[in-house]
Write a protein that binds this DNA or RNA. Structure first.
Lengths: 335, 335
DNA sequence: CTGTTAGCGCTTTCAT
DNA sequence: ATGAAAGCGCTAACAG
């Protein structure tokens, strides 16, 4: 394709040394006015762009960060990602994205990219660290939306326990007594937290925690369907369910309808995340709104700050959430 | 963070020259067995990884490609993206993603990245090229899902006209005569094509093409709502609508319900894309299935082939689609 | 089969 | 204020 011009071409054209060209571009005020003009003109004439690979090599920093996401097709993660990308661009960083949905251990190849200095750090939107992360090599990593159960790594997320608890309390306040829970993969700290919040609400209300009303799904519509099927098989049927994300809520409602039960008339459901399909579903889904974009933005800000200062910001920030009551929940009818 | 070892460290440890280390790693069979062993051992001992920035600088290729997507939160694009990412990784390329949803001219800064040799080319999932793409600088670019109306650029997409036509014909076969169309942004060739296919089906069936039944949306749930509102205001009301994507179909159905009309009993709707929420919606949406992942995969394969051979594959490939009939369409009741 | 050498394109002392 | 020179870490001739 088109031949690129290098700093040497510019220098030659402007009649100065390459050092002067470099200076003019990075610290214009240290070169003489007249020289600057000449260089700028040459830059324009040649269409010169500093080769960013060369700059990075010289400076020993890639100025890019990897974002590892469990499934970019999940509207929750894609919004977190957008926040991360925006923050990166604002700081002149580019983002390399790794989608873990086809094979979770793709993460390992992205860790290799930071080993190979192609990226400076990782923003982790999945709970499980890549398998090769701990053979004695450390680098900046911050969690976004997920977090480190050992608390060793910086993270930005939400208070999952509290959010799940309030979602469940909403159902309890509506008069429901037999409330099921369909969780995401319990390997994830966030999912364990949501489950804990659900159980806590039950306990505080003096309600029993029934194992047969607790199903481990995996955040997909399908697992929402399977989950509702399972909890409905309990001898003493539930009248409501708290699902750990909106997609599972959709699956649950859908399957309920297939079985002839209408939401919310016959059964109440509350979801989690408030993805944009939640409000548009029929019925519109009561759910927990989480500041996805902001989570991504702050996580990226955090890692870039760390990269710049070389100081480890061992911080854990939790952003606020909000229960959004819509149509999928209603008072338990006295029957 | 951790000091990285360089090729020099390995060479020293193995007692060979850096050239030998390099050779051992790239063409193991040209070095003596014994030397290879020694080098490999040193590599292991030091945890050496070739600095990929240095390699790229030397080879004058970034081995990464930019993917420009209009909105990564759109399930359609996120799946196309996944296909692209998988193909890239399979060839040892990394992908830099640029999301255009917040500001369409972010594309320009990504074009700058290929100018700055940080990326080798662009896979374009948006119809509108970045504004700075034509100041006399050319580079490999292939469209995915969108395409170049002038036919100048390689692309992989589908036959939008035919697909939209068959969707509309399905409605006609069901007895509908007043069929509305809610399109995406008509600046996009694909949206103009879908509209053309819709009109073609009407014409071939001897049906009038009514401007008042034609609404230009923008692929969002909201614009589906606005669109249905608009076409329903026509004097002679439509009984069905073909929307250019599933999100608009969801918006339309949702708004219809709010107005007391049930889909499909009172009104039929067919969408486009077959995103995973289409099947799970209530009612499940009749739509056109498009091979999203495959589109992304092939587009990426195409650009990588071009990068490797330096030959321009001025090809345009169209992948097959399929009408999926679900619950949102039914025969017009004789009334 | 292996080592020496010359860069890839850039930034940054160190002189001047 | 500017230039010369020394690399950043690597690959690829070219010798030997």
């Amino acid at each position: 394709m088109t031949r690129h011009s290098t700093i040497r071409d510019v220098a030659r054209l402007a009649g100065v040394s390459i050092a002067t060209v470099s200076r003019t571009l990075s610290r214009p005020n240290v070169v003489a006015h007249e020289t600057r003009e000449a260089v700028m003109q040459a830059v324009l004439a040649t269409g010169y762009r500093p080769n960013s690979l060369a700059v990075s090599l010289r400076r020993l920093e890639a100025r890019s960060v990897v974002v590892l996401v469990s499934d970019i097709s999940n509207p929750f993660y894609s919004d977190v990602f957008k926040g991360a990308e925006e923050a990166a661009r604002a700081h002149g960083y580019s983002v390399l994205i790794g989608d873990l949905s086809t094979d979770p251990d793709i993460g390992a190849s992205y860790v290799d990219m930071v080993r190979a200095r192609r990226a400076d750090g990782i923003v982790m939107m999945n709970y499980k660290l890549p398998s090769n992360i701990d053979d004695g090599f450390t680098f900046p990593l911050v969690y976004a939306s997920s977090y480190d159960p050992k608390g060793d790594r910086p993270s930005v997320s939400i208070d999952y326990v509290a959010a799940a608890k309030s979602a469940t309390e909403h159902l309890i306040a509506l008069g429901h007594r037999r409330i099921a829970h369909i969780s995401g993969e319990l390997g994830a700290p966030s999912c364990r937290d949501k489950r804990a919040g659900y159980q806590l609400a039950l306990q505080e209300a003096g309600l029993p925690v029934a194992p047969e009303l607790d199903y481990e799904g995996n955040d997909t519509i399908d697992s929402g369907m399977a989950g509702i099927e399972q909890v409905l098989a309990a001898a003493d049927r539930p009248t409501a369910a708290f699902t750990a994300n909106d997609e599972m809520a959709i699956g649950a409602i859908r399957r309920l309808a297939a079985r002839g039960a209408t939401v919310p008339a016959d059964f109440s459901v509350v979801g989690f995340d408030d993805i944009r399909f939640a409000a548009a579903y029929a019925p519109a889904i009561t759910t927990v709104q989480v500041p996805r974009f902001e989570i991504g933005r702050q996580a990226m800000e955090m890692i870039i700050a760390q990269l710049a200062s070389d100081a480890l910001p061992n911080r854990t920030v939790q952003l606020p959430t909000k229960l959004i009551i819509r149509e999928s929940t209603k008072p338990l009818r006295a029957n």
